[in-house]
Amino acid sequence: MSLRKETVAMIREYARRYPSAQSAIIPALWAVQHEQGYVTAESLAEIATHLELPPSLIESTSSFYSMFLTRPEGRHDVVICVNAPCGLRGADEVLAYCERTLGIRAGQTTQDGAITLRSTPECLGACGGAPMMQVDHRFEENLTSERIDAVFERLRTEPAPHEVVKPKAVAPVKGEKARSGVEGARPRARRTQK
């Protein structure tokens, strides 16, 4: 068992938050990815244990969604949207520029382990700011070569998001059981305030 105590506490808290522990699967996967940067089979099994659910169910759910990584990659996740609206404004060229600049192909990680570059046909939801990329789940829109250069420059030295902030224990909630989940989720939101 490799998850931190705090993460396990969060997972257990999620299980209480919903009428069915199963609803806690996706929040639990996020908690694990937040701690470790990705979700391994061992973590899936651990989630299953804490939620008292069959592990096949956890894998079935986690593998369905595109945002859970299954193995360690670069410290930073850069995803270029190549769907139609971005394509109309040069997403292919942005991707080519990124590949050239980083010296890797989409799907690969830079030698220094700083950046994993990917492209996706999945609309990331910033069509009005095309071309765009998603950097560690934050949007960079209206991309130009200068803008891309600046982002990469920053990422070269920045630690991975899951290394910056560690999950905290869920705050105990006084007097409220059924609703505790909502408050219980608060530290997560506060934590990421810079």
Binding site: I26, W30, S66, F68, E122, R179, A185
Partner: peptide, 12 residues
């Protein structure tokens, strides 16, 4: 009444 934010994980 309360509002719970439940985050998805990438599925249109």
């Amino acid at each position: 009444v309360d509002v719970l934010l439940h985050r998805g994980a990438g599925a249109y």
